[in-house]
Design a binder for these strands. Structure first.
Lengths: 356, 356
DNA sequence: CTGTTAGCGCATTCAA
DNA sequence: TTGAATGCGCTAACAG
């Protein structure tokens, strides 16, 4: 069994209070005794037992990261952002992935507890009334990343504008038949951002006097494979779209696969726009709405850490910028194309960016 | 402040021992009092404080997952495997990402402690002598995933054979100028598997009577961008390779980007083989060595959970199978190609697999 | 400046 | 079958 603070105290010939003081700099200690203690600590290779200190201090030094869509690359990039700042702090990360409704319930019932974690970082999920009640009752700091709640600090995007802007870009290119594929518009996992992106999509169409066709909107669980299926369905329609706007890059990659399956050339036969700008969007040369995922993770923990330190500040809301990154999956539709000319004909390899 | 076991006991009109017994089924309790306790638990929405529990039981119900190369998709797929089994257990996951030597030291110095975690799951890292000493001294269960140590349970691949097989395939296609790009052959982060893959590469060349050219081996930190750089260097050689075998898919994707930069056609101008078969290898139609990453995570935790339950079993070693998955980034080299014929000319979309 | 003690919340042993 | 007492390892308040 590992050494305890008592072993150290005995070996150093001091009391346990002194050892604790040395370890935590909690009160001045005579330099000589200090050295004796340090020597004993080194000798015994002593590291304080976290359970003991947690119990005593009423602080866990642990942050729960609650993640839905744990299968997607975008969540991983956020998590990487989180880990990069956590590595330099003295907090631990406890990871909770939720994929199903029962899991969601179990996690929200047991995790947001004082004595269990010091704070909650919640990705892409809006808390329900019950969730919020528990969070407030336990008085536990919580930050939403890609989520929204008036009473909780959160990091969000202007999804309506970003989506509208992206679809507007397609319209400007000359597209009139633009489809939208997305996650389910209303389920327990939606953070509402899905709905917002859909709204932006509609707004752009309506502003251009284009009809919103219900058959051009497909919904399904987030995965590349589902993106492929939904795109296949759309492209097999009697009057298929010439452009597809996807709720996420994950789905957009599926669209690209579907185009390949059907031997359609992208962008000439089909334009595709994604959302997120995951690392692989660059590889796939996907035109997409960039949100800085890594950064959202970084800002999220930092905000949470602040909130833990300073619990009584009013909830901060942080809006992250988005950018339409134009790469090589979008161009003018075939019937509008002037022969021999293509909007995306350059091969500079440089991303062209349009500020939102 | 949340309710404690004392609050429950008082409300139910019983002793705390009884409450504990009900909660843990640790001794028979009269059905009537049992119901009273349960009612009080529900009323107060009581959940035991884990720190108290841990301290008392000397068990943390927490597993540390130590991950290097946390930036890569392959590690994420492993982690997903881990989370899928953890969700059904009553263990928590504590995540430690290590990217630098100091981080590595700090993590291995503080994390493998009884009272801190119940077990260690280590990804793609071989423990040093010091690491092992601490692990044994603390008597803490540890499992290596994509790692090797004679005294520790581990999950590994036959990397030598898998790499040899992959390079052999390139040779069979007619390639003679085959390069290898990899992680640094010897740094503290290498799990030795890198060296093994290099060995397989050499063996295949030597068996075919091909010269091993030092300038055809490049080393660099794992990232797509580095893969691109290394490939660029290789392809700008006076006598460039006609095929590149990459230590990982991450690097291989960088090679594909480099080819695009140079306007080389893959596979006609350059064949590329990766290693791992991450999800995006499918999207990129990359020929690669498949190791089932998700599965390795699953097997890893399961093995660890077993070891925690049953600490005195002798260390299990599990070899996972690999498969060369042939997609569309490999073909016969240009000078050998019979005009109009291409080995990979079919477009069935089905992966052709070769068992190792 | 430092040793001693109380108590954090729980499981468990010892009595009853 | 159950209540009370003990201790897990630590921090912090208290007393010197």
């Amino acid at each position: 069994m590992p050494a305890t603070i008592h072993d150290v105290a005995k070996l150093a010939g001091v009391g346990i209070g002194t050892v604790s003081s040395v370890l935590n700099n909690s009160r001045p200690v005579n330099e000589t005794t200090r050295q004796k203690v340090l020597a004993a600590v080194a000798e015994l290779d002593f590291v304080p037992n976290p359970s003991g200190r947690r119990l005593s201090m009423g602080k866990t030094h642990t942050i729960a990261v609650i993640i839905t869509y744990f299968t997607t690359a975008s969540q991983f990039e956020r998590l990487r952002g989180v880990m990069s700042v956590i590595a330099e702090s003295d907090y631990d990360i406890s990871l909770f992935a939720i994929e199903t409704i029962p899991q969601r319930q179990r996690v929200f019932q047991t995790v947001p507890r004082r004595g269990r974690v010091d704070g909650l970082l919640i990705f892409s999920l809006n808390p329900t009334k019950d969730d919020l009640r528990r969070i407030r009752q336990e008085n536990i700091p919580a930050v939403l990343v890609e989520g929204y709640h008036p009473e909780l600090p959160h990091i969000f995007l202007d999804d309506v504008a970003a989506a509208r802007n992206a679809v507007q870009y397609l319209i400007d290119l000359g597209h009139q038949k633009i489809a939208y594929i997305s996650d389910y518009l209303d389920d327990l996992f939606s953070s509402g951002f899905n709905r917002n992106r859909y709204m932006g999509y509609r707004q752009a169409l309506e502003a251009a006097g284009l009809r919103v066709r219900p058959e051009y909107h497909r919904q399904g669980w987030q995965s590349r494979e589902n993106g492929r299926q939904m795109a296949l369905d759309l492209l097999n329609l009697p009057d298929p779209p010439t452009a597809i706007f996807a709720f996420s890059d994950e789905l957009a990659l599926g669209v690209l696969e579907a185009a390949r399956d059907l031997e359609l050339k992208v962008p000439d036969d089909l334009s595709v726009v994604g959302y997120d700008d995951i690392e692989l969007a660059h590889f796939a040369q996907l035109t997409t709405v960039r949100q800085n995922l890594f950064e959202s993770g970084v800002q999220g923990v930092e905000l949470l850490l602040d909130t833990i330190e300073n619990p009584h500040a009013s909830p901060t809301q942080l809006q992250l910028p988005t950018k339409l990154v134009i790469r090589k999956t979008t161009t003018v539709p075939k019937d509008k194309a002037v022969s021999g000319q293509s909007v995306n004909s350059d091969h500079s390899g440089l991303d062209k960016k349009t500020s939102l």
